[in-house]
Design a protein around this nucleic acid. Structure first.
Lengths: 341, 341
DNA sequence: CTGTTAGCGCGTTCAT
DNA sequence: ATGAACGCGCTAACAG
């Protein structure tokens, strides 16, 4: 029934018959306050169970010590790992992290962004939804002086801050490794054509084959809608070729799991009859008995961590006079093929 | 260089030569304001790009429309899935979710809690760290009228709000299924003795064997420190028995992966020579070629979702006069053995 | 060293 | 139908 109102500096001031500003200063151990007073204030604060009201501070300082993170889906290991990277980086700075899942729709992405803007977060980290093909909603944030750093799924623009992965390095390592092992027929099981990731993988695959002076054989390139049956079909199609590949680059780990099963079902041996390298999105291979030669790791945690570092630079820098030439913070994090040998 | 200060109701009042209170009311479509004025205000607000300053609102209303979630580790699928459950439930209510990872230490859990208290979150959801053996830090929240709902890893107390999983139902289904399939020698690969989860699994295992009128054979109970080599050793120990089990309940999916590999290495066939049922923490089996008979699913998403529902009840209820008898919101979510047949 | 005053943005009486 | 004044909790500029 009774209100249980939280004690404020006013309470402390009243109790000690001093002014609120003295209390405020004493609590911050301001040097201009006498040692005794400071002590008495701290004492009284403890007795009353005083806790600073950050809500009031945020309001006054026009700063919330909060950063927003917008990601497509928390359930994907890649993004929960990224979120970890943000949290771990922000926590020591006493920043709070608020989250929003776009669920890969532009609509939700916009709504979350609006909400975070209203919240007056100090900055925002974004990994774009698959739907996002327009960036006006981010433009508007500039007016509010809320810095935005993109990571992983970044807009195709130059005037932004971002941390992105670079698949080329990993793909090159992968194909080079395969070539060095003697593979000449290297296939590709790619994803649905409508995904940007698919086109990207195709281009890199072609490029890296050429870097290794290998002829491209388009029969060795198949695709899947990512459904289980389709994954199996794609693998079977490759195995049924007159000249089947001895190694295959696979769109991602989920697809690879089905591929491995398909190979086994055909009484072939993984890493002997056929080898795999995939794009890592599952942290499971170390626990498995059959594993691919390697995975191309994109370092979600590190990308997010670096993006947070950028964001903090922008937040801190916001108070200082900006240099005439605005520099965009940009970073490419090379992917790496990690071997499971 | 220029401040780019965000427009406030004051700006738009000035622009329209009316008072801020009129603006405030107009923005809320208060009926006492004339239609024309209301329209002009909305118009001006749009032109100036006015956005309500939630920071100010929070401060004034003493309410932040924010809930805190404290979980051990975001990287664990169980908890990221739980976080999903919270987010999905809270989002439609326009509540914001802030997160903190205790990383399974009591110390961090306390710090995060303090921080959230300072933030004046409207409520907190907690899944305890493994370290947590004292609950004073939660007690103190009561003074601040911040409701707490525990989920999954809950304190061993009666006077709390919580949503917990119940492993008994799943374990019973599992063992009953095995018995019905004709299994008489059912083993248990348990975790480290120091974990509460280990003791719990052991007790339930014994209980459910008895429910099925099966003798307990303590040779069939082994444990692992959860390291890979130890997992393998545990499995080998079972296989080396004169009377090896034909089915095994396994501590969790990670351990199971190693068990499966061990069985295969011994040229035995999973689901034929030996069957497994494990406690689900990895969403991978549907992608695998060799899967256990089933997993005991603990419904992280649903637990968290229900816990959030409870929290909202408590937050809303906080305004209404409390009933003399405080009721504790408590819910047990039965685990289920999901079959992969 | 300490007190007084003002103000951050907003909603809300209480007056007109 | 509208405005003036106040206060939420806190800090800081300006007096003493």
């Amino acid at each position: 029934m009774h209100k249980n109102k939280l004690p404020t500096i006013k309470e402390i001031a009243k109790k000690l018959n001093i002014s609120t500003s003295t209390v405020s200063r004493a609590l911050h151990d301001h040097k201009s306050i006498g040692a005794v007073t400071t002590m008495r204030v701290h004492q009284a604060a403890k007795e009353l169970g005083y806790e600073v009201n950050k809500s009031a501070l945020f309001f006054k300082q026009q700063k919330t010590y909060t950063i927003g993170v917008i990601i497509p889906n928390l359930a994907e290991p890649f993004f929960s790992s990224a979120l970890c990277g943000v949290e771990d980086f922000a926590e020591p700075f006493n920043y709070t992290v608020i989250i929003g899942q776009s669920l890969d729709t532009l609509d939700r992405e916009k709504r979350i962004l609006e909400n975070m803007k209203d919240h007056r977060v100090d900055g925002i980290l974004v990994s774009l939804s698959k739907d996002t093909n327009t960036y006006d909603h981010f433009e508007s944030l500039k007016k509010y002086n809320i810095p935005v750093v993109f990571f992983d799924r970044v807009p195709d623009k130059k005037d932004i801050h971002f941390v992105a992965g670079n698949l080329h390095s990993g793909m090159l390592q992968a194909i080079t490794k395969l070539v060095n092992m003697g593979h000449k027929k290297i296939g590709l099981i790619n994803g649905p054509a409508k995904l940007a990731a698919t086109l990207q993988r195709l281009e890199l695959y072609l490029k890296c084959l050429r870097s290794n002076d290998l002829e491209v054989n388009y029969d060795l390139i198949v695709s899947t809608t990512l459904s289980k049956t389709d994954n199996v079909t794609a693998m079977q199609k490759l195995m049924a070729l007159e000249q089947p590949p001895t190694a295959v680059i696979v769109f991602n780990d989920y697809v690879l799991l089905d591929c491995i099963a398909t190979v086994k079902a055909a009484n072939l041996v993984v890493n002997k009859d056929i080898s795999f390298i995939s794009f890592a999105n599952l942290p499971i291979w170390e626990y498995m008995d059959t594993m691919p030669l390697g995975s191309i790791e994109q370092f979600a945690y590190q990308q997010a961590s670096k993006a947070t570092e950028f964001l903090f630079q922008l937040i801190e820098g916001g108070n200082q006079p900006q240099p005439a030439e605005v520099k965009f913070l940009q970073c490419i994090i090379d992917s790496e093929m990690v071997s499971y040998s």
